[in-house]
């Protein structure tokens, strides 16, 4: 059994915890409950014939008061970079965090960008310009909704495949 550490990274209140909870326990709550520190969960999955246990580190989001502690990324094989599609500033935060993570590791670490809260279509703010910018970076981006479950399995499986395939 392979064990892989994956971190959830992004601004506060983008839905990192909800994505993990939906993926691990298949449940969702509309109530926002902020993460303090780190929450660690495990989830066994199968990639082809390979059994992999994902150790999911749900890191408290960045805000004006607290910055992400990069040391928590130590030993991570990859990470999910989460953006709230209804809050454009969270994309800026994600872009900055991605740079910091690369600097921390001194190399590019596999990651997938999640454009979360895709169920909130009327409040969606990410326009063509932002999407084009991401396309320019050649990032793998997946639209997700912890509420409906859209894209979540795909997100974790895509990242795990990137990691296992390395």
């Amino acid at each position: 059994m392979i064990q892989k550490k994956i971190c959830m990274v992004g601004a506060f209140a983008v839905g990192k915890t909800s994505l993990v909870t939906r993926f691990v326990q298949s449940i969702f709550s509309d109530k926002y409950l902020t993460t303090v520190g780190v929450k660690i969960d495990k989830k066994p999955i199968k990639i082809g014939d390979v059994d992999v246990t994902l150790v999911l580190w749900d890191l408290a989001g960045e805000d004006e008061l607290s910055k992400m502690r990069m040391s928590y990324m130590r030993g991570a094989s990859g990470y999910l970079l989460v953006v709230d599609g209804t809050r454009p500033t969270t994309l800026d935060t994600a872009i900055n965090l991605q740079k910091k993570v690369d600097e921390f590791f001194g190399k590019e670490v596999p990651f997938v960008l999640l454009l979360n809260k895709n169920d909130l279509t009327s409040e969606w703010c990410l326009g063509d310009a932002e999407i084009e910018e991401l396309a320019g970076k050649r990032w793998t981006a997946i639209k997700t909704s912890a509420k409906t479950g859209e894209g979540i399995e795909k997100a974790f499986l895509t990242l795990t495949q990137m990691i296992v395939g390395e």
Partner: peptide, 8 residues
């Protein structure tokens, strides 16, 4: 002292 950490 560390941050709080939650583990199962």
């Amino acid at each position: 002292t560390s941050d709080a950490w939650t583990e199962t």
